[in-house]
């Protein structure tokens, strides 16, 4: 494998991790606790896209919808999945967070662990343990006459993943920094009491954070589903990667989480290609333990102060 291909793979894997990690940070910032089910929400997005694909492929080959979107089914599914999972995320927060918000933070942590167990066991029973492939972002069979466009060494899926992630992250950044709504979201997360005092509906903002985080997680699931397949147990590893990315990048830092995700992906791919995959994982965990020992505030410092 030459360097360009390696870099390209790293970017693709890193962007998917970054999407999962971003959702993780959004919830972290608003609620102040780890969402242990973040990885399983990614997997839920993956299975939703698999289901949508099976529905889509039963469509009449001549119908308008099919002819329009057959070259890029993933692009069609993206808004549908984000919508469904966003609503689901808001509904879930009504069960796992809002009844517990006056209790210690650890309690919410444990309730997300419970959600994670419930989701994982549901996937196992509904879809079985075998890996399933999701829809491609760009279906190359329909792009035969364009096959020269993506450089031959870079496969089209990775290209699509990087592109979509880049667009979504830019959109999220603009939403949070430029829009009125984004500023309110951040205000509610940083100081709920003060935000409430100046008339921001804090609970609605938290609900929205959950919806946004779940939609991002589900997008990551869609992006990963074709290239890396979907399995029920994958969520635990993804959650751990997001957790580590956020710790590396600095607890509560959006940008730091993205950098952390890219670092983990490059570490995995480069280290893994030199030695073996298990060794790369062990090295990553040792690195995390070392980081916690020497610099627990992460590479860019903690954005999240201690909340009294």
């Amino acid at each position: 494998m030459d360097a360009a291909q390696l870099l390209f793979n790293t970017l693709a894997l890193g962007s998917a991790y970054a999407l999962a990690a971003l959702g993780f940070v959004l919830i972290l910032n608003s609620v102040g606790t780890v969402n242990f089910a973040q990885g399983d929400l990614v997997v839920a997005g993956g299975y939703l896209s698999v289901t949508l694909l099976s529905v889509f492929s039963t469509l009449d080959g001549q119908s308008l919808l099919y002819t329009l979107f057959a070259p890029f089914p993933g692009i069609l599914f993206l808004p549908i999945i984000m919508g469904i999972m966003g609503v689901l995320g808001a509904l879930l927060s009504l069960v796992i967070y809002f009844p517990l918000r006056s209790r210690p933070v650890v309690t919410v942590f444990v309730s997300t662990i419970a959600l994670s167990i419930i989701l994982r066991s549901s996937f196992q029973n509904l879809f079985g343990g075998a890996p399933q492939a999701g829809p491609p972002l760009l279906d190359m069979d329909h792009w035969a006459y364009f096959s020269e466009i993506p450089p031959s060494q870079m496969d089209s899926q990775s290209f699509g993943v990087i592109l979509v992630t880049g667009l979504l992250m830019t959109a999220l950044h603009l939403l949070l920094t430029k829009s009125h709504l984004g500023k309110r979201l951040r205000a509610a997360a940083q100081d709920p009491a003060m935000a409430r005092a100046i008339g921001i509906p804090v609970h609605k903002m938290f609900l929205l954070s959950f919806a946004l985080a779940t939609a991002l997680a589900a997008t990551a699931g869609l992006l990963l589903s074709n290239r890396y397949f979907v399995t029920p147990d994958e969520g635990a590893v993804l959650m751990l990667k997001a957790y580590i990315a956020v710790t590396i990048g600095g607890w509560g830092h959006l940008g730091g989480a993205v950098v952390g995700a890219l670092l983990i992906a490059s570490f995995e791919i480069i280290f893994g290609s030199v030695t073996s995959q298990p060794l790369a994982e062990i090295a990553l965990y040792l690195f995390v333990l070392g980081l916690l020992f020497f610099r627990p505030q992460g590479l860019f410092g903690e954005a999240l102060g201690r909340r009294a």
């Binding site: 957790y243 995390v288 627990p296």
Partner: peptide, 27 residues
């Protein structure tokens, strides 16, 4: 190193340890 840290870091460290030992057990 990590017991003095806040809950979420302690949870991460113990989770990383578990994963590491699981990989060792398998490999």
């Amino acid at each position: 190193p990590v017991l003095r840290l806040e809950t979420h870091y302690f949870a991460l460290a113990t989770l990383a340890l578990s994963q590491m030992v699981l990989i060792l057990g398998l490999e």
